[in-house]
Computed example of a mutant assay.
Amino acid sequence: MKTKIMHGIAVSAALTLAALPASAETILKLGSVAPSGSPWGKWVTGVAAKIEEVSGGELKIDLLLDAQAGDEQTILRQTAKGRLDIAFVSNVPLTLLSQEMAIPSAAYLFDSPEQGTCVTYEHLSGVLGEIMENAGVVPLTWMEVGHYVLFSKEALSTPADLNGLKMRIAPSIADAALANAWGVQGVPMGTSDTIPALQTGAVDAAWFPTLFGIGIGTHKVAPHVTVTNHARLIGTAAVSERTWSKLSDQEKQWLGVFTAAGPKLTEGILGAEPALLGQLEAGGVPVHKLSPEEAGAWKASATGVLDAVIAEAGGNAQAVADRIAEAKAACGA
């Protein structure tokens, strides 16, 4: 099923350069925890500038970055209620809309980065868009957050090395299911609490998306990095349904700049991951890159995680997972 926005909007966005301006200036407030100097902050700043350019200043995005509008859960709730116009958030708070939203972040879901990108941009709106719209938000594009890696105080070479450890995980059923499969004590924790928890020994290790984890300095307190790439976290830029219903067709087309620009963010994030890990390694940080055999052992130890996520999510989770499986087949390995 196609959503209200993903019906060729990327194409229509390109055509709006020559379109007539709207009759009055519209300003939409966008909330995000993304630091303004981060790849995500820079990307959304560029998108906002492009929207203002193509609209001739008739549509502007007021960026509330650096958690000015609260944490991600707060931002998403406020957007669903119409108190914010656009949420730019990761997949973790999206489970507030429905636990089925955790499925795309299940461990080892995709066979390759290319397959994951194809499913995300070619199929995911059809799978999840209706769920989001029914919860009060309309997806404009998907936000790449990147692949998870492990940060630990001691070297982790095999899943057996996790025995007895306390691992910081995101408050997500997808993360909890993997922690259970790996036999590690998963401690759900917000990002701001993780560094102090590692310093005090409240947790022994953490997993984060590569760029984010390095960006907040996790490797400085948990200096062993294991490149498991065990899951891929996505997110969204989504507009409030209440705001969407008030916009003109022209304004909706201008917001298509988000849609057109999404793949560029993915390209930048995924391209930066190996480069940044290489910089850590060159700086003396132990970075363990798994051999094919080691990667296979980590993946095998997570067998059954997707089924556990589906069972925990309930509702239409199995149907969502089936549609993602169909999308994977369509995209190829």
Rank of each mutant, 00 (worst) to 15 (best):
I9P: 04
I9T: 10
P21Q: 00
G31M: 02
S32E: 01
S32V: 06
W40K: 12
G41Y: 00
K42R: 13
W43K: 02
W43L: 02
W43V: 04
V44T: 12
I51M: 03
E53M: 14
G56A: 11
K60I: 00
L63F: 09
A69F: 03
I75C: 06
I75Y: 00
L76M: 04
A87Q: 07
L97E: 02
E100R: 05
M101A: 15
S105N: 14
A106F: 11
L109P: 02
P113M: 01
Q115L: 05
T120R: 05
E122G: 12
I131G: 14
N134W: 07
G136A: 05
V137G: 08
P139L: 02
E144T: 13
V149D: 12
L150H: 00
S152Q: 01
S157K: 15
P159D: 01
P159C: 03
G164M: 02
G164R: 04
I169G: 09
A170C: 07
A170R: 08
S172I: 03
A176K: 14
A179W: 04
V184N: 09
T191H: 05
A197P: 04
T200N: 04
D204P: 10
A206P: 05
F212R: 08
F212P: 00
I214M: 13
G217H: 08
G217E: 00
T226G: 12
T226R: 13
N229Q: 08
H230V: 14
H230L: 05
L233Q: 09
I234Q: 04
S240E: 03
D249Q: 04
K252N: 01
K264G: 15
T266H: 05
G271S: 09
G271V: 07
A272V: 11
G278K: 06
G278P: 13
G283P: 12
V287K: 05
A297K: 13
S301E: 03
L306F: 09
L306K: 09
A308Q: 11
A308Y: 10
E312H: 12
A313E: 06
Q318N: 11
A321E: 00
A321F: 07
E326L: 13
A327N: 03
A329I: 14
A333H: 15
